[in-house]
Simulated scan of single mutants.
Amino acid sequence: MTTDTHIHNTIRDSTSAVILAGGQARRMGGVDKGLQLLAGRPLIAHTLARLAPQVGPIVISANRCLPEYMAYGHPVLPDALPGFIGPLAGLHAALCATGTPYLACLPCDSPYFPMDLIARLFSALTDQDAEVAVIRQGERVHPVFSLYRRSVLPQLTAYLERGERRFMTWLQEIDSVYVDLPVDTTEFANFNTLDELQRASSIST
């Protein structure tokens, strides 16, 4: 077994992932974003295809259209906390439901992320013995592209119980390390409107 294969297997054996699809998608008119089509396939399908080779178990954080998401063969986790309070609720539910030492977090609306994304995050997290590794492009931090140790769960629970909701503020409360990538890459571009999806679909067909 080569070193790269060993590392890949280690990451897959120790890392679960949550795809965040539980938002209200206000800028898309309130439709369920993860089920909207890009080049004839739902965004959640694109995300799963890129993510599945990189990790072990995958869960989907969703609060609507649960049967449609369940059809993809992965557990679907509604927020335990009411009121669509944001992505931290989905992260919290996934940390509670998964048992691996590490949990990767990704959004459902950015289907072009790198095929070695989790490996990059894992390397930074373990090399620097941090609690979370996060993607950063220049001054822009992408908190929903991140990898956590399960040990952050009590801290996140306490943070949410205080009524806090901001992802960036949460990252400042734990031991974070950043994976810096070029500003000009479009690998972390996301879709916020149906027009953006339609334009992208027309280019790729």
Rank of each mutant, 00 (worst) to 15 (best):
T2M: 14
I7T: 09
H8D: 11
N9Y: 15
R12I: 04
T15H: 09
S16F: 03
V18Q: 15
I19Q: 13
G22I: 05
G22Q: 00
G23K: 02
G23A: 05
Q24E: 11
G30W: 00
D32N: 06
D32K: 07
K33T: 13
K33Y: 07
L35I: 13
L35Q: 07
L37N: 02
L37P: 08
G40D: 10
G40E: 15
P42I: 11
A45K: 08
H46E: 08
H46T: 04
H46N: 15
T47F: 08
L51A: 12
A52W: 05
P53W: 09
Q54D: 12
V55I: 09
V55G: 10
G56T: 11
P57L: 13
P57M: 08
V59F: 02
S61A: 09
N63W: 00
N63I: 05
R64K: 06
P67M: 12
P67G: 09
E68D: 14
Y69F: 08
Y69E: 03
Y69H: 10
A71P: 07
G73N: 05
H74W: 12
H74T: 03
P75C: 08
L77N: 02
P78A: 09
P78D: 06
D79M: 10
A80Q: 14
A80P: 03
A80H: 06
L81S: 04
P82M: 07
I85K: 07
G86T: 08
P87E: 09
L88Q: 12
A94P: 02
T98L: 15
G99T: 00
G99Q: 08
P101R: 14
A104H: 01
A104E: 04
P111K: 15
Y112W: 03
P114D: 10
M115Q: 14
M115R: 03
R120E: 02
L121H: 01
A124R: 06
A124M: 05
L125K: 01
D127K: 02
Q128H: 00
D129M: 13
D129Y: 09
R136C: 01
Q137L: 00
G138F: 12
G138D: 13
G138T: 14
E139L: 08
R140K: 13
F145C: 06
Y148T: 01
R150I: 01
S151A: 07
L153K: 02
L153Y: 14
Q155R: 04
Y159M: 03
L160S: 13
L160G: 15
R162T: 07
G163C: 09
E164G: 07
E164N: 14
T169S: 04
T169K: 15
T169E: 04
W170M: 06
L171Y: 07
Q172D: 11
I174R: 01
S176I: 02
V177L: 00
V177T: 04
D180I: 00
P182V: 13
P182S: 05
V183N: 05
D184I: 03
T186L: 12
T186K: 01
A189V: 06
N190S: 15
N190A: 14
N192R: 12
N192F: 12
T193L: 12
D195W: 08
L197I: 10
A200D: 15
I203Q: 13
T205R: 15
T205K: 01
